[in-house]
Design a binder for these strands. Structure first.
Lengths: 171, 171
DNA sequence: CCTGGAATGATATACTATAACACTCGGGAG
DNA sequence: CTCCCGAGTGTTATAGTATATCATTCCAGG
């Protein structure tokens, strides 16, 4: 049975469009907040959006160096912190890596599906799931301030095909 | 309104009993599986159970050294890997730390509540929440292999009191 | 201008985790 | 009994992730 509305990016999608949209949205979000999307921040965001696979801070750093820029770890982490605070990217705790936010500027509760075969991630905003989490916390009198929900497994595309990116297999 | 059945460890509980129970359960689990709970593994488990606050691998390492034992990082990580595989401890991804499993030997899906004020964690096994996660995955045709659900916030005890362990405040 | 805060540069270091190889020990095959 | 084998541990080195600290630059507003 086919999946009706897969939220996983399709293999042949126009990714340049994803990137352009994300950068535009970032300009907009920063503009409204009076924040500066400096060249470094913009470039880091672009690199995070290089694919739908989470990317590590040091991989970003390597790319910045390839740009010919003087870059050190703090350069990257400052930009990542800025982008995280503005909700333009997400951190995947179970991978120590970062991925673009699919709904920048909108407040949303997020859950991730992470494919161990192709490395792609999908960002969910499942209301029933969020509510179940909220109920669980309320039952315990717990005041939730942040949530990490990361589900690793095999996406539907990889289930029906030989793995295409074995390099991204889970640890 | 008071919480009916808080799963958070109470401040004055008999923690020695928690530790003893955990060690007994570990002996039992290992015995049935024909695995060896060696002195190092037992000691690491005991240290992880030192409190209901997640502990980092290097903090465990320091304790082992205090024991007068020759210990290096691999010593600790090997023991932790063993304990993780047998389901005797859990890893908290968002803290890079480890905490004792409240239900060793039983297969269960787990979610964590992590108090940013006192550092305590509570292990939930909320069936509705697990089912909501399962449905979410099925909707996407996603085959879940592992789950990370970690909710950070303030536990009910800390909400009604001045924080008692500010050193454990979230990053 | 000039000045104060934000952003970046630069260096050092802390923290987390694994690779690789050597050694020991105890149990089973012969 | 001896040999051998594999699990467990010791040891050293290194990989990978993140932050502290201070210097410098840049730019918007006075």
């Amino acid at each position: 049975m086919a999946v009706k509305h897969s939220i996983f990016p399709k293999s042949g999608h126009d990714h340049d469009h994803c990137v352009a949209t994300a950068l535009d949205a970032a300009e907009s979000v920063c503009g409204k907040a009076g924040e500066r999307l400096t060249p470094i921040r913009r470039r880091v965001l672009e690199l995070v959006w290089g694919s739908h696979r989470p990317i590590g801070a040091y991989a970003i750093l390597d790319r910045l160096k390839e740009d010919g820029r003087n870059a050190a770890p703090p350069t990257v982490y400052r930009a990542l912190d800025f982008l995280l605070e503005r909700g333009l990217i997400h951190r995947i705790e179970s991978l120590n890596a970062f991925v673009g936010c699919a709904h920048p500027g909108e407040s949303h509760l997020v859950q991730f599906l992470i494919c161990r075969s192709c490395g792609m991630t999908a960002e969910l905003d499942d209301r029933r799931l969020s509510e179940a989490i909220g109920r669980s916390a309320v039952d315990q009198g717990f005041d939730i301030q942040s949530r990490v929900v990361e589900l690793s497994g095999i996406c539907s595309a990889c289930q029906s095909a030989r793995p295409r990116h074995p390099a991204h297999a889970a640890r």
